[in-house]
Amino acid sequence: MRAQDGPTLITSVQRAFRLLEAVSGHVNGAPAKQLAREAELPLATAYHLLRTLVHDGYLRKLDDGGFVLGDKVQALRTTSREQALLSRVRPVLAALRDELATAAYLTFYEEGEIRVAEIVDGPRAPRADLWVGFEDAGHATALGKCILRELDDDARRDYLSRHLLADLTPRTVTSSPELLRRIDASPVAPAVTDLEEYALGTVCVAAPVYSGDILGSLGVSMPAARACRMAEVLARLIPTADRVTRGLSLTM
């Protein structure tokens, strides 16, 4: 690498950031000449960087020739906000893990799928062997069944129509009507349990949480031999889920 390559690359990045900052000040878009002037860049340099940023999705060129922030910048904003929200509740999940000596899991129902947002485990609280992804095992996990319990009938039908109820263990319920009957009749409602339905030797329990209007679930897993502690776990889990909802619902 030549000596000037490093500084030249850094300078290009700095110029690109200056253009992004200039574009962010114009909600309805601004033309290249105006952006070059505001970013204090030669017009030719601005044109080159603008084309690159448009190509990579960080900017979008409007029909009138103006430039606005692109989808990638919006995605970065969303990711940043989500990480900031999660940072608020990680200490709560860690406290739950330490008190119960169980791994703690946080999931959300987004775009029709159950996705893991956070797992807090440790040497004394190892996570379950996630041998099947949560997207394909919502019917067999406490976290997934908890979300299904909270969904309305149409959303339930939609989810179940798109997911095979695979037989993961001899205890897995693979009939949709029976699964919904058991979920609705959960003896620990609003929580739901998984008694070795996802993995033999492991039991889980989960309670619903919300991040604004986004549904999720907070759960813990433990060896089946500790299922006798379920009442103690529930007494701690349900108020913790309420606390997580409050933390996730605070305005950023």
Results as ranks from 00 to 15, higher is better:
Ala142Trp: 01
Leu106Cys: 07
Asp153Met: 05
Glu135His: 08
Ala166Val: 14
Trp131Val: 02
His139Asp: 07
Arg182Lys: 13
Ile214Ala: 12
Arg124Gly: 10
Leu143Phe: 07
Ala140Ser: 13
Ser161Leu: 10
Thr102Met: 14
Asp167Cys: 11
Ala140Lys: 04
Leu215Glu: 03
Arg124Trp: 06
Glu150Asn: 08
Leu179Met: 12
Leu164Trp: 10
Arg115Glu: 13
Leu179Trp: 05
Thr169Ala: 08
Asp194Glu: 12
Arg181Thr: 14
Tyr159Gln: 07
Val116Thr: 15
Ser175Gly: 07
Tyr210Cys: 12
Leu179Asp: 03
Ala142Thr: 04
Leu100Cys: 12
Asp194Ser: 13
Leu106Lys: 03
Pro208Val: 10
Leu164Pro: 02
Asp136Ala: 14
Ala166Lys: 13
Ser211Asn: 11
Val92Phe: 04
Ser161Ala: 15
Arg156Gly: 01
Ala189Thr: 10
Gly112Gln: 11
Val192Leu: 05
Glu135Arg: 13
Thr172Val: 09
Ala117Gln: 15
Asp136Pro: 00
Ala128His: 04
Glu197His: 06
Ser175Gln: 13
Glu99Trp: 10
Ala101Tyr: 12
Leu179Cys: 11
Glu178Asp: 14
Thr169Asn: 09
Arg156Tyr: 05
Ser176Asn: 07
Leu143Asp: 01
Tyr159Trp: 15
Glu99Ser: 14
Thr202Met: 03
Cys146Ser: 07
Leu215Asn: 02
Asp167Gln: 15
Arg97Val: 08
Arg124Phe: 08
Ala104Lys: 02
Val132Glu: 05
Arg156Trp: 06
Cys146Ala: 10
Glu135Gly: 06
Thr107Glu: 12
Tyr105Phe: 14
His163Arg: 15
Arg157Gln: 14
Ala94Ser: 12
Ala95Lys: 01
Gly216Ile: 06
Arg124Glu: 12
Leu165Gln: 06
Arg97Glu: 03
Glu197Gln: 12
Glu197Phe: 03
Glu150Tyr: 03
Gly112Tyr: 03
Leu148Asn: 01
Ala128Asn: 04
Asp167Ala: 13
Arg97Pro: 02
Arg181Ser: 13
Ser211Asp: 12
Ile119Arg: 00
Val209Lys: 01
Thr107Ser: 15
Pro190Glu: 10
Ala206Cys: 12
Gly216Gln: 05
Cys146Tyr: 05
Ala137Gly: 07
Asp136His: 14
Leu200Asp: 06
Ile114Gln: 03
Ala103Trp: 00
Ser211Ala: 15
Thr172Pro: 04
Arg97Leu: 09
Pro208Asp: 08
Glu135Pro: 01
Phe108Arg: 04
Ala155Met: 07
Gly212Ile: 05
Glu135Met: 06
Leu100Gln: 08
Glu110Gln: 13
Glu196Asn: 06
Gly144Arg: 05
Gly133Trp: 02
Arg171Pro: 00
Asp213His: 13
Leu179Gln: 06
His163Asn: 14
Gly201Val: 07
Asp194Met: 02
Asp158Gly: 07
Pro208Ala: 09
Leu195Arg: 13
Pro208His: 04
Gly216Asp: 06
Cys204Thr: 11
Gly216Phe: 00
Thr174Ile: 13
Asp153Cys: 05
Ala125Ser: 06
Ala189Cys: 09
Leu151Lys: 07
Asp98His: 05
Thr202Gln: 03
Ala206Gly: 11
Val209Phe: 01
Ser176His: 10
Ala155Phe: 01
Ala189Trp: 08
Asp136Met: 08
Asp194Gln: 02
Phe134Glu: 15
Ile183Thr: 04
Val205Pro: 01
Pro126Thr: 04
Pro187Phe: 02
Thr102Cys: 15
Val209Gln: 01
Arg171Asp: 12
Arg97Thr: 09
Ala185Cys: 08
